[in-house]
Design a protein around this nucleic acid. Structure first.
Length: 375
RNA sequence: CCAGGGGUGGCGGAGUGGUCAAUCGCAUCUGACUGUAAAUCAGACGGGCAUGUCCCUGCGGGGGUUCAAAUCCCUCCCCCUGGACCA
């Protein structure tokens, strides 16, 4: 694969690459390059991580980059996930979470051997330079900035938090340097941490990131955050609405009931959630179903055929997201037909993963997680 | 550690001895209406069933006063604001 192909592969369907020049520089070097994406062990894996993030992980792997999945157990603990029980979090991380990511990766056609899993707590224990790196990062960042950065934990800026949460951004940044990761891959919600990493990169005494003798900044690759299936909190949109605010309110979230589909949801669950999803006819911009078509379907397909009854126009062949948007905007495609397509598509795509968690060890791991979440 | 304020249903937030299973808003669920969802309207919304002017549990935990407590008293825990301490 040549340089241009690699760049194209890594940057396809991303929201942002910081920066493209640095990406090119890294890819030109002859060194083994390391990718990283961190996941808080926060509960069930939804399609945002399962399909969007893992698809990008596969892109990295296909580009010949060593990919690392960082199981952020300490981070989950800090962020009060799973009852804030570190031991339980660790267990879920190495069982359910790892298992789930492998299973979806296979659904996407990836080879699980590509994936290198790192458990945060283990990584810290074995790495004497880790905590000095945290301090090093902290010394090069202001308190005000850390306070602003708690949005990466899903907290609102200015929200009252315990002190550990202010350590979280520094830890996340230190993860990147301690792991010697050249690529920090995340959803756009993690942008603040990645930008801090780039800002402190040249100041660090501990674990600086190097290519040869040159100290470099990690390249941030930000993938799209899927829209939740719910109606946005601000709707209908009025004149002078805040687009950012609206988009933030639309993000898929585990805390918003039925806004997310999980990688092992049953066929009925998938269909039920899609059916009740917000989907205004003719609206392409703030429409979760259109969003999912773009990031879950057209990210993989060159051509799709939407089945329709004759009275509704008969089967429809579409070749791109732009074509779909145009047709939908003109109300030449009814939401119900589109929903049916998306549901069928996901049911089929996720089948191996679903079956994996329906029996044996997989089932046990999922039940273990559910029990913990119901506490 | 001290002073003051506070902890009520999934969330926000009323209530401050009986008429409180607890106003109201949001969320959620059901039905009607739409070829989806939304919006709108009607109903449900602590749990149970025999669905009733029925039973149980309940207003941070525990104990007490009272015929009667979310409401008063004691005690413990936790949160917020400020202060004190700082070899």
């Amino acid at each position: 694969m040549n340089l241009q192909e690699k760049i194209k592969l890594i940057s396809r369907r991303t929201e942002e690459i910081v920066t493209l020049d640095d990406l090119e520089f890294l890819l030109k070097s002859k060194e083994l390059l390391n990718h990283y994406i961190g996941f808080e062990i926060s509960g069930k894996i939804h399609l945002g991580t399962g399909l969007v993030c893992m698809q990008k992980v596969k892109d990295f792997a296909d580009a010949g980059i060593k990919v690392h999945i960082f199981l952020a157990d300490y981070h989950a603990w800090i962020n009060d996930k799973l009852g804030g029980d570190l031991e339980a979090i660790k267990k879920i991380a190495v069982n359910y979470f790892k298992e789930g990511l492998i299973a979806v990766y296979e659904c996407l056609g990836g080879n699980p051997k590509d994936l290198n899993f790192i458990l945060a707590s283990e990584f810290y224990r074995k790495n004497d330079d880790y905590w000095p790196t945290v301090i090093d990062v902290a010394k090069n960042t202001t308190l005000a900035r850390m306070k602003r950065s708690i949005t990466i934990l899903g907290k609102k800026e200015g929200e009252e938090v315990d002190f550990a949460k202010l350590m979280y951004p520094a830890m996340q940044v230190a993860d990147i340097f301690s792991g010697n990761f050249h690529f920090s891959h995340s959803g756009t919600d993690q942008r603040k941490a990645n930008v801090i990493a780039r800002d402190v990169a040249k100041q660090l005494k501990f674990s600086p990131l190097k290519i040869g003798d040159k100290i470099v900044k990690p390249v941030a690759v930000h993938t799209h955050l899927l829209l939740g299936l719910n109606k946005p909190t601000i709707w209908p949109i009025s004149v002078g609405f805040n687009k950012n605010e609206l988009q933030t309110s639309m993000k898929m979230s585990k805390s918003k009931l039925d806004s997310a589909i999980f990688i092992h949801d049953s066929e009925d669950e998938i269909r039920r959630k899609i059916k009740k999803a917000f989907c205004p006819e003719g609206e392409v911009e703030f429409n979760p179903i259109i969003d999912w078509m773009e990031y879950l379907v057209f990210s993989r397909e060159e051509k799709i055929i939407i089945e329709r009854q004759l009275e509704h126009g008969g089967d429809l062949e579409i070749h791109s997201i732009d074509e779909l948007k145009k047709i939908f905007k003109n109300k030449e495609l009814h939401p119900e037909d589109l929903k049916k397509f998306v549901a069928d598509y996901l049911v089929e795509l996720l089948k191996p993963c679903r079956e994996h968690f329906e029996k044996g060890e997989g089932k046990k791991m999922l039940e273990e997680l559910e029990e913990l979440m119901n506490k």
